[in-house]
């Protein structure tokens, strides 16, 4: 199929390439991840990053399998899986909290950067430190109170009705996720103070989400 309108503007090849790049080119290669922490801490950090990645992938796959198994059970055998909904709920919490830390490592959290991008370099750099510190503190605060929440739930002995396991088992990822996210933003602040460039995360340079110039 060909374009038949000779006067058509040529589409911007960069934008197309970016959009077509099946997420493939954009996939995060965990083997290339460099921790912001020195020495043995760095090794642990890299290991945690790996675990987060695996949890994300396995969580999503399990969710698909679990949901389908329920359909097959109900439709083919006539027996629903009663734990199916609770398992999905557990998985969505796992995915969310493993993911926010993973997203923080790779500078993938959504932000509105229009005004930020318009600032001069020095201001951007200062702002980035402020943003990282504030975000880190907010995450650590939430980590603390979600720890408290998990402990309260554990002490109340609330059970999941179908799985009959303690409810805190499925929410324990919240304090972990918030803590690791806070840690990542803290490291990002330090990285920005030590390095000459502007870093979105310890492993991501600013510029990842720069908009491509518009034609029209």
């Amino acid at each position: 199929m060909t374009l038949d309108d000779k006067h058509a503007p040529t589409p911007d090849p960069d934008v197309i390439a970016a959009a077509e790049a099946t997420a493939l080119d954009d996939d995060i290669d965990d083997s290339k991840y460099v921790s912001g922490l020195p020495g043995i801490l760095g090794v642990i950090d890299v290991a945690i990053a790996r675990i987060e990645a695996v949890l994300l992938a396995v969580g999503v796959l399990l969710m698909a399998v679990n949901t389908m198994a329920n359909v097959i059970g109900r439709f083919v055998i006539g027996e629903s899986l009663f734990f199916s909904e609770e398992l999905n709920r557990a998985l969505i919490i796992l995915i969310t909290f493993a993911g926010i830390s993973y997203a923080a490592r790779h500078g993938r959290h959504i932000r509105m950067s229009a005004f930020f991008d318009a600032m001069p370099f020095r201001m951007r750099k200062t702002m980035m430190v402020v943003i990282s510190v504030v975000t880190s503190l907010a995450m650590l605060l939430l980590a603390w109170y979600s720890m408290d929440y998990v402990l309260t739930q554990a002490s109340r002995g609330r059970l999941l009705p179908a799985l009959q396991v303690p409810q805190w088992w499925i929410i324990v990822w919240a304090p972990l996720g918030f803590f690791l996210t806070g840690l990542q933003y803290g490291l990002t602040a330090i990285k920005n103070m030590l390095d000459k460039d502007i870093w979105l995360s310890t492993s991501t340079l600013e510029g990842y989400d720069d908009s491509v110039e518009e034609e029209v």
């Binding site: 109900r74 006539g78 009663f82 909904e85 009705p161 009959q164």
Partner: peptide, 10 residues
């Protein structure tokens, strides 16, 4: 053969 919706309580 009636699929009957119930809340998830044993």
């Amino acid at each position: 053969e009636v699929k009957f919706r119930v809340m998830t309580n044993p």
